[in-house]
Amino acid sequence: MKTWLITGASRGFGILVAEEALRRGDRVVASARNPAAIVERFGSTDHLTALPLDVTDSASVTDAVDAAVDSFASIDVLLNNAGYGVVGAVEETSVDEARKVFDVNVFGLLAVTRAVLPVMRAQRSGHLIHISSVAGFTGSPGWGVYAATKHAVEALNESLHAELAPLGIRSTAIEPGTFRTDFLDASSLAAAGSEIADYVDTAAVSRQWSASANHAQVGDPVRAAKAIVDVAHMQDPPIRLALGSDCYARLRKKFATLNDDLAQWRSTTLSTDYRGPEGA
């Protein structure tokens, strides 16, 4: 039996993972800014605690972690799921709009992770699971700022994995492609307030897609939730896990491009090593 703390658990992957974990007999502390939807969906059960949590509020984070430990005495899995997106060209996205999405997707994730780690270090066990994105490896028109937040999550995950493995704690980044969650709803995706005509063939296309593709994406979120719970129960979980055929295709293309770039510029890359006076 695992004890989970899930952020952003009122909808999307958060509530589906909570449902799957409960189905398997795990205990779940499900948190969200408004936990009413959690209570409405699951009712009252000994294996579930629903809590308010705003990942951008340090006091709220501390209170939620303390309450989770009070409820079940441990935290075995932290699912960093809280987050949202912003669509618009980089130039169209204001500093304030960018800061808000970084506050949730990066600094909120960091705050909850830092609050949970003392519990896991004391246990000498635990598993951090972070919802990243295909955008954590690939940038595309209209998604630059959102992708930047998920690139940050990928970097944090790799470092956390290296730092925590000797302590018996795992860290995994989940990289979904497009799934039929509510991510493209206005409640999860903001549009940059500025629109510049020069981006009509690039970022504007992404704006249009986000308005038309909602709930028609290739990915099945129920299947994704099952895969995420599977990862939490693995003895040797992956450092990262791509989900969805579209994610798989985009990552393969990105890796091929990186390999081509390395090969093409190999001589320039290697020429910059220090050789000393004799090798100058």
Score class of each variant (00 low, 15 high):
Leu251Phe: 08
His151Lys: 01
Asn259Ala: 15
Ala155His: 07
Leu22Ile: 08
Ile6Ala: 03
Glu91Tyr: 05
Asp273Lys: 11
Ser31Val: 02
Arg252Phe: 08
Tyr146Ala: 02
Leu109Pro: 04
Tyr248Lys: 14
Gln123Ile: 04
Ala191Pro: 09
Ser271Lys: 12
Thr178Arg: 11
Ala190Lys: 05
Asp260Lys: 13
Ala173His: 03
Pro176Leu: 02
Ala225Asn: 02
Pro238Asp: 10
Gly168Tyr: 05
Ser132Glu: 08
Gln217Leu: 14
Lys100Asp: 15
Arg11Ile: 06
Ala216Val: 12
Gly177Pro: 09
Glu92Asp: 11
Ala165Ser: 15
Asn80Glu: 10
Ile129Gly: 05
Asn105Trp: 02
Asp246Ile: 13
Leu128Ala: 05
Ala162Ser: 13
Gly219Gln: 00
Ala186Cys: 04
Val90Asn: 10
Asp46Ser: 13
Ser94Asn: 07
Val231Glu: 02
Gly193Arg: 06
Ser267Leu: 11
Ser132Cys: 15
Asp260Leu: 11
Arg252Tyr: 07
Val65Arg: 03
Asp230Tyr: 04
Ala197Asp: 15
Gly279Asp: 06
Pro221Ala: 07
Leu164Asn: 03
Tyr84Val: 03
Phe102Lys: 03
Asp76Ser: 10
Ser94Pro: 02
Val218Asn: 09
Pro238Thr: 05
Ile15Gln: 09
Gly43Cys: 11
Ala115Asn: 07
Pro35Ala: 02
Arg24Pro: 05
Thr7Arg: 05
Glu91Lys: 05
Ala36His: 12
Val200Met: 07
Gly108Pro: 00
Asp54Gly: 06
Ala148Ile: 04
Asp63Ala: 15
Val112His: 07
Val106Met: 11
Glu278Arg: 14
Gly168Thr: 02
Asn34Gly: 09
Pro176Asn: 05
Ala82Cys: 10
Ala224Gly: 15
Ile196Met: 14
Lys100Met: 14
Thr272Ala: 14
Ala224Arg: 06
Val229Gly: 02
Ala50His: 09
Asp246Ala: 04
Thr45Gln: 12
Ile169Pro: 09
Leu164Pro: 13
Gly144Ser: 12
Leu128Gln: 06
Leu156Pro: 01
Trp265Pro: 07
His161Tyr: 13
Ala263Tyr: 07
Leu164Tyr: 05
Phe102Gly: 06
Gly168Lys: 06
Ser60Cys: 10
Thr62Cys: 14
Gly25Lys: 07
Pro118Thr: 11
Ala204Cys: 10
Leu51Lys: 03
Glu175Trp: 03
Phe102Ile: 13
Lys100Val: 01
Ser212Val: 14
Pro118Tyr: 11
Ile196Ser: 12
Gly83Pro: 00
Ala37Ile: 10
Ala37Phe: 07
Asn81Glu: 10
Arg240Lys: 13
Gln235Asn: 15
His130Tyr: 08
Val200Phe: 03
Ala249Ile: 08
His130Ile: 14
